[in-house]
Amino acid sequence: MSILVLKILLGVAAAGYFLSAILFWCKKRVPAYIANGAAWVLNAVVVATNWVNNGYVPFVSMYQVLTFLGLCFTLANVYMVLVHKDEWVSPYFNLCSGVVMIGCCIMNATLIWHFVPALQSVYFVPHVFCYMLSYSLCAVASVLSVIWFFNKGNRANLDRGIHNLVLVAFPFMTAGLLLGAIWANQVWTEFWSWDAKENWALVTWVFYALYLHCRKYKSLQKFQYVFTILGIVALFMAFQGVNIFGASGEHSYS
């Protein structure tokens, strides 16, 4: 499948995710789920094509990882709906998926990426998977945190929703961070090299840990959403900023 066809699929998937978000807001549940499902299937087709092109799991380039991130939003959404009965967060998951799909459409989508020796590790898939799942949850939590500052009428619901999201995101982020460190000790000789991506990943983790700590005591609760918003800024720096600004380091191929 050519790059053009894949990009068209991603564009249609983005439209499907956005349509689903609008339908959820309009309380049209069944069409919303159908649009979400259809967009997710198109998204999955692109991920599967990347997988076939690679011959191994498609986590090697940023384009491939972002297409997989689109899938994670819906997976996380399904968990939130089934376990926490938080269907009202569904449009935010779809909105974030749509934005990521647009990003995939406009970025350089090199199809052939070779699996270099440093990446050939059992830690590779769980490291990336844990991070993508936590990033999808954190992105939605940050959107809700911004809304929390402006919507005084619905704060209790938002508060519970954000907490549920971070409670799922945090252990996966922890696993992503530390499995990466254990892997680094196998391949780069050190658990921690203080390179740009690692530093921002640590800052992100500390910010979300601070959010969870601030919830414990009433006098600190006023700071909690400052940390979820700072967390998403740090997360963006770790995930994209390091690549965009061309910082050197061990993570040069990620």
Binding site: D195, A196, N199, A234, A247, S248, G249
Partner: peptide
Amino acid sequence: IALVVAVLGSRQVF
């Protein structure tokens, strides 16, 4: 700690 590491990360990135 977050602030110090963020400063180090900013120096590397920017």
